[in-house]
């Protein structure tokens, strides 16, 4: 168990180091989410009255698509250099390697959320409070587990850019439903925040367990 943890942390550290040295993904994602907000502004005719009803939807759209890009990239470098095969040849368990990749991708997405949430507060005038941040972070955990599983899968498939959203988005819907509710409440709508947050935690547990069971079949080939 501790051995798996060491492997996972090492893989995550490798991914984060390589991102830190190239700095290609996070700045691009940050710019991507800001662009999404600009487009939403022109698409929706935002003013001070409707901003709080539209903002949660814009947040989830931007987040979901940024997530697809982030998780798609998680395995791109490995594929280009065939380094995933090399990692799998070591005695390390595929599940631990997968956990490391998912952890790194989740942290990169969180870095992108650190741009998205303040930008949303700035451009849409919505509150930026702890409830909002907690809901988005809790949703990120499960989304990262699922997103990485399917990114690992499509990395070896033709037409991966098309297939990743097709497979991942429907499975993310539970997170968007519960997370959407939580974010709406955090931004001032009425409803049960704790209920939605509890549901998100349940989904996290369920999908983290399921993806760690399935990772072996997707990676080990």
């Amino acid at each position: 168990m501790t051995r798996a943890l060491v492997v996972a942390l090492a893989v995550a550290r490798k991914d984060l180091t390589s991102e830190w040295r190239t700095r290609e993904l996070v700045p691009a994602l940050g710019q991507f989410v800001v662009l999404a907000l600009v487009i939403a502004n022109f698409g929706f005719q935002i003013d001070s009255r409707n901003a709080s009803t539209i903002a949660p939807g814009v947040l989830w759209l931007a987040l979901v698509f940024a997530g697809l890009v982030a998780f798609g990239r998680a395995f791109a470098a490995e594929r280009e250099q065939a380094s995933l095969e090399a990692m799998l040849l070591t005695p390390a368990s595929p599940t631990a390697i997968f956990a490391g990749k998912a952890l790194a991708a989740a942290l990169l997405l969180i870095a992108c959320e650190a741009v998205l949430l303040p930008a949303l507060a700035l451009f849409f005038g919505t509150p930026l409070n702890a409830a909002l941040v907690v809901a988005v972070l809790v949703a990120t955990i499960g989304m990262a587990a699922l997103g990485c599983l399917f990114a690992a899968m499509v990395a070896r498939v033709r037409a991966r850019e098309v297939l990743l959203p097709l497979l991942t988005l429907p499975l993310w819907i539970p997170f968007v439903i519960a997370g959407g509710q939580a974010v709406q409440v955090a931004m001032g709508a009425r409803g049960g925040y704790n209920q939605a947050l509890g549901l998100l935690v349940d989904f996290d547990i369920l999908f983290v367990v399921l993806t760690s069971l399935a990772a072996r079949f997707v990676l080990d080939d």
Binding site: L146, L149, V157, L206, A214, F217, V218, D221
Partner: peptide, 25 residues
């Protein structure tokens, strides 16, 4: 997935995972 994955073991495994996750989702 069945159409796009390399036919054989890979497609079958990937599709099995998608089928299981889909049923739960």
């Amino acid at each position: 997935v069945r159409r796009l994955a390399e036919p054989g073991r890979q497609a079958a495994r990937f599709a099995a995972v998608v089928g299981i996750f889909g049923f739960i989702d």
